[in-house]
Design a binder for these strands. Structure first.
Lengths: 125, 125, 125, 125
DNA sequence: GTGGTCTAGACCACA
DNA sequence: GTGGTCTAGACCACG
């Protein structure tokens, strides 16, 4: 059945993920300017082309906007920010549940296990 | 900045993970024989040495037993099976929560989101 | 009859044993750097892979720590050092007693013989 | 310093050791006939030449006697039996102490450790 | 430089 | 056939 193995996600997607998370978490706020392609390339030690591709990817999803001659900025469109936030959350959750089910864990067990970790900072009912 | 990018987990660990999950999920049952090193190497398209290393890893954790001249078998030791199952579960949960927190989601939001999938959707396949 | 003849311990375990003893005896001190994989391979006249395996084995037991790009170092964790020291001691003692019993020596004779060497001879060098 | 690794003791010496121990332990008694070279070769799954060499070795030490046309017998010379018994014992003890000292264990620690094993369990064989 | 992974192919021991 | 060990040589990531 199984085929080959992951040679890991492309760097430009890893970078996109990281930026998405920084935006969603509020580390990067609406209207914030992202580092220039060249700055980002240096600080992340990747090729500028790779950063370019990441920015293009993010712009395609609407979460950032490129303004010619000025730079790349986090969108201030709240709908897009909100839906991105929801989408990332749901992706994570779906993936998590998928994996847990594949390993044979039942819903109750998953929730019980999770509660164990979340309790202390959260609530339960 | 602190970190670069992941260059992916070693193949022998990816294989170990896969087998661990198959055992934990019951797809491979206690006493079952795993494919021989050579078979697995062919079907997974990796070098026999890499499979060997995987099997060795699994044996070190006690989840399988290798019998020279016979094959490699899923342990029938229930304690080890149980603790492996628990460990994998907790690893997944911890990782999930870690990621969610990094993205700025609060405990309540995580649990609410999860409940939607687990209770609302009856997300079984 | 039951058994054939020993075809000797694997090289990587012989090497591990030797290093374990050097650590336990204090010849290699906590924090000391072990020879690099390649150096050790040359000086021991074995393949670097074999040394790698030895180092990996030692790291799994916690007695050494490998730092990529830097080298392999004796742990400074005193608990691990102590328990390794105890384990090696007990292994030796158990084996010694096993052999002596197999040859038909009684406990009193063993202790008497030992005392001769330890107290009579002042067997220090 | 250290050179290469043991490719294990020659089989003829392993066989000699085993027979020496059987004699010293009384499993083979004075006057007992050892299996013929051919029998021993079959039962131990080694080459008859190897057995031959073992017997020659044992005869050189006086612990067995070859009688032309009759076979090989455990000596009935009590002096030789006794001194062999003592020699084997002392060899083991010396070696044991040597190893323990090399690993940095002091005399008191050795004796204390040994006592733990000898007094707790009593003896049996 | 360091350690870590992987492949290719060999040989051994067990059954 | 099985798993286990070893070598030779390559490439990668880290610093």
């Amino acid at each position: 059945m199984a085929d080959t193995f992951q040679s890991s996600q492309p760097i430009y997607l890893q970078l996109a993920d990281r930026l998405n998370r920084q935006i969603v978490s509020g580390e990067l706020k609406p209207g914030d300017k992202l580092p220039s392609v060249r700055e980002m390339a240096v600080s992340s030690k990747v090729n500028p082309n790779t950063v370019q591709r990441t920015y293009r990817e993010l712009e395609a999803s609407g979460i950032v906007e490129s303004r010619r001659g000025q730079g790349t900025f986090v969108t201030e469109n709240e709908d897009i920010l909100f839906s991105t936030r929801e989408k990332l959350k749901n992706d994570q959750i779906e993936n998590f549940i998928q994996v847990m089910h594949d390993m044979g864990y039942e819903n109750e067990e998953i929730q019980a296990g999770l509660r164990l970790y979340l309790e202390g900072g959260g609530h339960n009912d």
